[in-house]
Design a protein around this nucleic acid. Structure first.
Lengths: 98, 98
DNA sequence: GGATAATATGAAACTTTTTTCATATAATAA
DNA sequence: TTATTATATGAAAAAAGTTTCATATTATCC
């Protein structure tokens, strides 16, 4: 997997688990255990997902003792989420319901 | 399929055929036959792809005689593509090679 | 109305992603 | 240096997405 095409990057956003992680990390950097607790996503699944997100530099990691603290690349992700929010309001009015 | 989650929208961008279509429509609105000619994507494949893009309002269609003219929702898509271009320059320097 | 051109659709086959599960690794504490 | 906690990894199974192919639809021209 090489991140040299748009679609590789977007695969990370095209998956509900990965967007859930992103939403959580939007709040603050977190260790994996904290993410597990907040998202209720199973450990190994989370780990696989984080590994993809890291690959495309959507998140980055720092070691802190036994823990790894993941943080969001806000510079890229926040503006994208904003565009989608707008898109839904403007073009998918029916789509905003749960 | 309901477009009420980020990841549904992004599925459209997470696929090389769909991004190819987007790149083509960035230039100008086009009929399906014109898209076939430019992209060399097979008719039915193109049609399926366009149907998803349309669903999420990434493209829209207008009938013109027998033809259907597809056009890109530039308001949403152009800014997103720009963000990714920046992202690659800033965070994935190794990823820009073909 | 029938023929033709342009595009869409449905379903099965195929491919790619995700999930699961068992196990590995790495850091710290005892 | 062993035990424990935190996280990662690989591979097979399961699920989801894409392709293919045959056929349907729709608009126009005759």
């Amino acid at each position: 997997m090489i991140c040299n095409a748009y679609h590789i990057f977007f695969k990370n956003l095209a998956n509900p688990i990965k967007t859930k992680i992103i939403m959580e990390l939007k709040e603050k950097p977190m260790s994996v255990s904290e993410l597990i607790e907040k998202t209720k996503i199973e450990q190994s699944k989370l780990s696989h997902a984080l590994s993809n997100l890291k690959f495309c530099k959507i998140v980055e990691v720092k070691q802190k003792g036994k823990q790894r603290i993941y943080s969001l690349n806000k510079k890229t992700i926040i503006p994208i989420l904003k565009i989608i929010d707008k898109h839904r309001v403007n073009f998918c009015p029916g789509c905003n319901r749960k």
